[in-house]
Each structure stands twice: as C-alpha cells, then as structure tokens.
C-alpha cells in the first residue's frame, strides 16, 4: 500500500562524500522536500490568518488574490466582540455576544476539566503503577475498556439523562463528560510516567514511616511533573477542540464553546468569511501555541495514549 508512494529520500546517510556537491545536492533535495511539506501543512493556516486581517476589498479580490495584506487591520476581530459579524448585504449575524461568552466557556470548560483530570489521574496512575490490591485488574479494565469504545453509544442516553437533571447547557455538565471520557487515556499516561520513576525513594520513605498520601504528594507528584504537564495539556487541547459533545449538550451562550459558536457564523444564506476567519484564528490559537511551545509533552502524551 505504502510502496505506491515513491520514497521521498534515501534511507541511510550516503557514503562519505567524495565531492562536496554531493552533500550540497542531498541538502538541497531535503530542503526542497521540507518546503513542500511545510507548504502542505502551513499554507491553509497562513491563508486564514491573512484573511482575518485583510480589508474586505482585498479579501474578496479576484481573480488575483492578495497574498500579503497591504493594510493589515484588526477590525474583524473587534467587530466579532462588538457588533457581530457583518454580512455584505448590511445585516449582522446573531453572534455578537456569543464570541465573548464562547471564549469564556471554552476557557472555563477546558481549564477545569484539565485540572480535575490531572489531579484524579495522578492518584489513580500512582495506584495502578505501584500499589497491589484485590480487584486491581478488574478496575483497570473497567476504566480502560472505554478507550476504544465509541462514546456515541453513551451520549444518546446521557442527553436525556442530563435533560432530566438540568445539566444540559451547563459548564458543569460538560466538565463531567470530559473528565470521564478523557480519564482512561490520562490514567494510562500517568501510570506509565509513574512506572518510570525509580521506586527506591519511596521504599526509603516507607521505611521512615511515611504513608501513601505523603508519598504521593511529596515524592511522586514532584517527580512525575512532566507527566502531569502532558496530561494537563492533552486534556486541555482535547476538550478545547471537541465539537460533538458541546454540539449535543449546549444550547445557548451559557455554555456554548468557541467550536460551536463558530458554526453559527454560517448563516443559512450568507457567510461572513472575514469574521469567520478571525473567529477561526481565535479558536485555534490556544492549541496552536501549546503545540509550538509544549510540543514534546503533547506529542508524547497523545501518541502514547492512542497507542495503548
């Protein structure tokens, strides 16, 4: 299947170069490939950022597009929070107040969920990695089994359950869902991190009469901090990016996060592309920054979690 793709580069480093041009040729080829790869992954993002700061005239220019805005403007961003997205026929989209509340809801839901998950999974990860008790295997599988399970099966009935107890359209309701659905991944991650910590320090502390709480808070948590950071980031980004859960479980500005607010920009007859572009930039900014600065943590967390 994969062999239909021609190999992009040769495998191992070429034999010691007899002439310099061979080395240069190899580098040139690698940089050419890199340029193509970067164009593929970043050009769409570049264009949405440019769209969000272009004036209308330049944005809707055709057939030649304006690739670099000559008069960059932040008007579309201001418009999002003040008047709402302006349609070209002069009307306004009903999203004026929703951006601010969406930002607030996204931040609250993601931060609270990620914090709760980090705390809960640190304890559980420590237990699964270190402590023997009866029924451990059962509890582990009970929690882990939902990782490959499509959550949709539970969501249907949860929707009616939440409607009855008033948890629809609340931040609390969403936090409950995210904490639960992200739990197996986080517990798994934390337990692998704790397993990598040498146990001599704990043994010494146990001999000195420390109890499990002291070991967890004074020894494990400080040592497993990179793991906790990874769990926090992964949970934050997964919650922030999620769409299906808030689509089903929110109705109004009380709880609608940015991902859902964004879909309201597509009116039935018209789309305000410049507002949508700026709203899209705002929505992708936090995960974007996290990817840039905490890539190592995120990648380790996300790939380890998905592999198991």
């Amino acid at each position: 299947m994969t062999t239909t793709m021609s190999p992009a580069v040769s495998y191992s480093a070429p034999p010691p170069p007899k002439r310099d041009w061979r080395k240069i040729g190899r580098l040139a080829f690698l940089y050419l490939c890199s340029a193509i790869v970067l164009f593929w992954s970043l050009a769409p993002i570049y264009w949405v950022v440019v769209s969000s700061i272009s004036t209308r005239t330049e944005l809707y220019a055709r057939p030649y597009k304006v690739w670099f805005p000559s008069q960059p403007t932040l008007d579309h961003y201001v418009e999002l929070f003040t008047s709402g997205a302006q349609f070209r026929d002069g009307g306004y989209s009903p999203t004026a107040g929703l951006m601010g509340s969406g930002l607030r809801n996204s931040l609250l839901t993601s931060t609270i969920s990620a914090a709760l998950i980090t705390v809960l999974s640190s304890g559980a990860g420590f237990i699964f990695a270190r402590i023997k008790f009866r029924g451990k295997g059962f509890v582990f599988y009970f929690v882990m089994l939902l990782m490959p399970l499509p959550i949709w099966v539970s969501l249907i009935s949860l929707f009616f359950l939440f409607s009855q107890i008033g948890l629809i359209d609340t931040i609390q309701g969403q936090v409950l869902l995210f904490v639960t659905f992200l739990m197996p991944l986080s517990v798994w991650l934390m337990s692998t991190f704790v397993r990598d910590i040498p146990s001599e320090i704990e043994d010494a502390a146990l001999v000195d009469g420390a109890n499990q709480w002291q070991i967890l808070f004074r020894i494990i948590m400080p040592l497993a901090r990179p793991g906790m950071v990874a769990v926090f980031l992964v949970s934050f980004v997964s919650t922030w990016n999620n769409f299906l859960i808030p689509l089903i479980f929110t109705r109004t500005s009380n709880a609608q996060p940015l991902t859902v607010v964004l879909t309201l920009f597509i009116g039935q007859y018209e789309v305000s592309w410049e507002s949508m572009a700026s709203a899209a930039v705002l929505t992708m900014l936090p995960p974007f920054l996290m990817a840039l600065f905490f890539q190592r943590y995120l990648v380790r967390g996300l790939s380890m979690g998905s592999v198991k």
Partner: peptide
C-alpha cells in the same frame, strides 16, 4: 520542521472544515 508539521493536528477539526471550505 518537525514542530511545524504537527500543527494541523492541534487545530480543532471543526476549524479545519471551515478553513478548507474557505480555501
């Protein structure tokens, strides 16, 4: 390059749908 290539993965899929709809 490795850092930059991973960025599309971090962008919310909903946003990606919009982004490409606009492209």
């Amino acid at each position: 390059i490795r850092t930059l290539v991973i960025i599309p993965w971090m962008v919310p899929p909903v946003v990606n749908g919009f982004l490409w709809g606009w492209l």
